[in-house]
Simulated assay, not measured.
Amino acid sequence: MAETITKIDKLINELCPEGVEFKELGEIWKRAPKSKIGVGKIPLLGVGKIICFTSGSKDYLVNDFLVDGEYIFVNDGGVADFKYYSGKAYYTDHVFTFGIESELVNVKFVYYFLKDNQFMINEKMFQGSGLKNLQKKLFETLKIPLPPLPIQEEIVKILDNFTELEAELEAELEARKKQYEYYRDELLTFGDDVEFKELGEICLNTNNIKWKENQNTNYEYIDLSSVSRDNNQISETKTINSDNAPSRAQQIVNEGDVIFGTTRPTLKRYSLINSEHHNQICSTGFCVLRANPKKLLPKFLFFILKTTKFYDYVENNQEGAGYPSISNGKVKKFKIPFPSLQEQNRIVAILDKFDALVNDISIGLPAELELRKKQYEYYRNKLLTFKEKLTV
């Protein structure tokens, strides 16, 4: 990598030793037509081989296109997330799309610059109460460094290589996750020799907080958004008390409880409560499952909630089209295998090892992927930082 950086430095010294020109994004872009199709109307486009970008993480393949060429796509509401594509493409109504007019500007170079500044763009150029929207008047004033085309192309080549390597590692990790999920489901599948019981039969009752009796105490509040869907950890909580507690802040959780998000349940928001969050408060949007320690290990219950069988049950029993949910009662009707505590311990020990191999960023492939991402972000920032040429 050092040799590559040296090559870039030589090109800069040769082609632009006094610095590079900066231009506002609005001076170099060509805005694509706004889409009139929302996500719900994507089926009207027919199934095909042309990518259709949405403002979310899911894209579709359709039979129509709005643009053909190199374009950059960003959702105009929520959180900034830039995408690049070359070829025919469609996009939904909450995706802002633009290309680059000048032949002296590499579209992918601009894309990588925007990715490198994504956090700043999200903080300063997405505004509004509630759902934030991209302020295009601000966005078009963003200054883009424009070194000579050979330098842009060399930087794109380097960053493409990083992206390709990262994609290979992610694909390998995804394959391992699928392998892990297969063995997990196999380990948690039992025959007639093991008793099955409803969750409600082997879980203990939980309590709600009485705010009138707890007026001088602060608690950490676990909302649905507090639980990471990537690693099932509780990431961000909000400090609340009787004065500012949301109406849904009701349920007391203890160490060893398993919480499962019942609102839009197929998003798979579930977590095992640790000592840090013992005796804190969670939203009524969770079903709190407290294993009876004489019969059921909390970690065994946690792994049960990860199984394909459980999510098939959830999908079949959720109600509501626009904002689906499943009741606590329905969740507790789910029947789980009930082997001996000794057998539960054995299975948990095996699954803990598997889980670490695909999720723990301190070891193995996840650690390598995390290292590559940090390395990529470092070099991307280094490669895309330029001295601005002074104009007299």
Rank of each mutant, 00 (worst) to 15 (best):
M1G: 14
M1T: 13
T6C: 02
F22Y: 14
W29H: 11
I42G: 14
G48H: 01
I50S: 01
I51K: 15
N63F: 13
G69F: 03
N75E: 00
D76Y: 03
D76G: 05
G78E: 10
Y84P: 05
Y84D: 00
Y85F: 15
V105L: 08
V107W: 00
F109T: 06
Y112T: 11
Y112E: 13
F113D: 10
F113G: 07
K115F: 05
N117H: 15
N117M: 14
M120V: 12
M125G: 04
F126Q: 01
F126M: 12
G128D: 07
G130R: 09
Q135Y: 13
I144W: 06
L146C: 08
E153R: 14
E154M: 15
I155E: 01
V156F: 00
T163N: 05
E174S: 15
A175F: 08
R176W: 14
Y180E: 10
E181F: 11
D185R: 02
L187E: 09
L188Q: 12
F196I: 06
E201L: 13
N205I: 05
N216H: 15
T217G: 02
N218E: 13
L224R: 14
N232W: 05
T237G: 03
T237I: 00
T237V: 10
T239W: 04
N244V: 13
R248N: 06
A249R: 00
N254P: 00
N254E: 06
V258I: 13
I259E: 05
T262V: 11
S271L: 01
I281P: 02
P293L: 05
P293G: 04
K294M: 09
L297W: 01
I304A: 04
F310M: 09
D312Y: 15
G329N: 13
V331G: 11
I336L: 05
I350G: 03
L351Q: 01
L365R: 00
E368H: 10
K373W: 07
K374Q: 14
R380P: 11
N381R: 14
K382R: 03
L384Q: 02
